[in-house]
């Protein structure tokens, strides 16, 4: 079960490596860059009416693309111009890898803890099962009848 989950996570991680998109180069690039008007949105998404930055950046991107630069080169151009903070998400290298990997590392570590805890509890369950007391058989029969009756009365209430 847990192994299956971990497997699923890895498959998904592998899929991550290939984020494909059908949009135009302009959209692709402008989705990777943050608008500089302070809105915290990507250039593609900024709709602030008084935003001076997004339209200008869009024009610039188109210009660079028309000059024959590839998408990566245009993005790189903006990074050298504005610094790393123009990127909508941190590049997957150096310290930034921490941000990309840590969530999954935490989940995997958590999965291991969950697995160990479950194992412990199942073990506890097996041992305590033996301990259930079975003294006074005729007494038990009386209780068993009562239990059946009460269960019938209990109806179909779920957990409150």
């Amino acid at each position: 079960m847990v192994r299956k989950m971990l497997g699923a996570v890895f498959v998904l991680l592998a899929l991550l490596a290939t984020p494909a998109s059908a949009a135009s180069p302009l959209t692709n690039v402008s989705q990777q860059l943050i608008c500089q008007c302070g809105c915290n949105m990507t250039v593609a998404n900024c709709t602030h009416q008084d935003c001076m930055s997004a339209p200008a950046m869009r024009t610039l991107i188109q210009q660079k693309l028309d000059q024959g630069l590839s998408e990566e080169q245009v993005v790189q151009y903006f990074v050298t111009e504005y610094g790393e903070q123009v990127l909508a998400s941190p590049p997957k290298k150096g310290l930034n890898l921490v941000a990309w990997i840590l969530p999954f590392a935490v989940i995997i570590a958590g999965a291991i803890i969950v697995y160990l805890a479950l194992k412990k509890w199942v073990f506890q369950g097996r041992t305590s099962q033996v301990e259930v007391k079975t003294e006074a058989e005729e007494d038990d029969e009386k209780y068993r009848l009562r239990l059946e009756q009460e269960l019938k009365q209990f109806g179909e209430r779920g957990y409150r």
Partner: peptide, 12 residues
């Protein structure tokens, strides 16, 4: 069977 035993021990 297991939970019935448990219920009975609670009743007791």
């Amino acid at each position: 069977a297991r939970y019935k035993r448990k219920a009975i021990s609670i009743l007791k």
